[in-house]
Design a protein around this nucleic acid. Structure first.
Lengths: 204, 204
DNA sequence: GTCTATAACTCGATAGAC
DNA sequence: GTCTATCGAGTTATAGAC
């Protein structure tokens, strides 16, 4: 009974607790008892509402993956010019992650643990299709507006620079003595910093 | 009894097996039985040599973290000019990871799970000190040789672009139908690609 | 050093009262 | 719907023979 609010339904309390526990410990590391304690109820109720641990986990994983991915899609497929698309992407994507900074590591982990589960459940429901962005990059190269670069490398570069720092936070904190508010400020800076970096790297 | 060689000592067989199992499943997901099977011996021997699961895990984690980190140190502290240092770093670092592509996710995970353990055990034994590289970047900015950039962002950018694609491999594979040898070739390309990208982003 | 057998314990799941 | 009590499978760890 750590943070459950009286006016939440049991189901909402369970979901909030499961979110917290699964995201920080993963499927194998999480205990149903931990989730019950966090929700301020008992284990039996977890099974009453969600039948078993795997089913509860799947709800949390899918909502997390959907929080992380579909908005990217929207930006990738928009009709913005390339440089504006890059600026929009870095700003929006880092904003999304700042709201749930532990989600990326959780999602990446579970996708590595079971890539097929991920494929089956996610791909149909809005997993980003970068094809339009990749084609747009090709186009700009052909027109001679930007330097030659394999579009896939460009995409990997942008995504890596947005996501990875959140996974490496403990190393930054420990090694360079950066506290939580300093870290948040660094990530706020990165919204523009990464876009500028990418654009400087490809513009002629 | 999957791949154990007759001429390895039991201890070596156990370490090789533990490496494989812990790195792919993490501490919580790994079973002592899995490790025993992989080593071709029985569970009791694991305890005979390493006393318990946590102690065996710690050996694997520390050797993995040391494989991932200390060579960077060497490059960071070298006397190379900045652009050569960037080229050396991306090439060497991606080479290291190509030899053990699952190590980065494993290490990042376990550091997030228990940051203090990591700090106690690793920092004293050669965890990278980027201070010299950061100072060198400051210096080049002051001399007017490169564009203004917060050195820490530059460092995060380089490391992110080298490491993150390995963690995201299953997504690349599933979404863009990239097989193992294509992936390896992409990462080989990145050795020069990332260096070029970084240098283009900061050179005047 | 290496094995078999089993003790001790953890944890997901269920039965059944209220 | 929610709880207490408990079962039973799976796991780590140890005892003891060889």
């Amino acid at each position: 009974m750590v943070k459950a609010k009286k006016d939440e339904s049991a189901e909402e309390k369970i979901l909030a607790a499961a979110r917290k526990v699964f995201i920080s410990k993963g499927l194998a590391g999480a205990r149903m008892q931990d989730i019950a304690d966090e929700a301020g109820i008992n284990k039996a109720l977890l099974h009453y509402y969600f039948r078993n641990k795997e089913k509860l986990f799947e709800v949390i994983f899918l909502e997390s993956a959907q929080k992380l991915f579909p908005k990217i899609n929207f930006i990738f497929d928009s009709d913005l010019p390339l440089f504006e698309k890059i600026e929009t992407f870095t700003a929006e994507y880092i904003s999304i992650i700042l709201e749930s900074p532990y989600v990326p590591l959780f999602v990446v982990n579970e996708i590595n643990r079971d890539p097929d589960m991920f494929f089956d459940k996610m791909v149909k429901s809005g997993f980003p299709k970068p094809h339009k962005l990749l084609a747009q990059v090709e186009e700009e190269i052909k027109k001679g507006n930007i330097k030659r670069i394999h579009p896939l490398h460009l995409l990997m570069n942008m995504i890596s620079m947005c996501i990875f720092p959140f996974m490496a936070k403990p190393m930054l904190s420990k090694r360079l003595h950066i506290n939580d508010s300093q870290f948040r400020q660094l990530m706020e800076e990165r919204k523009k910093e990464v876009a500028r970096f990418v654009i400087d790297a490809i513009k002629k």
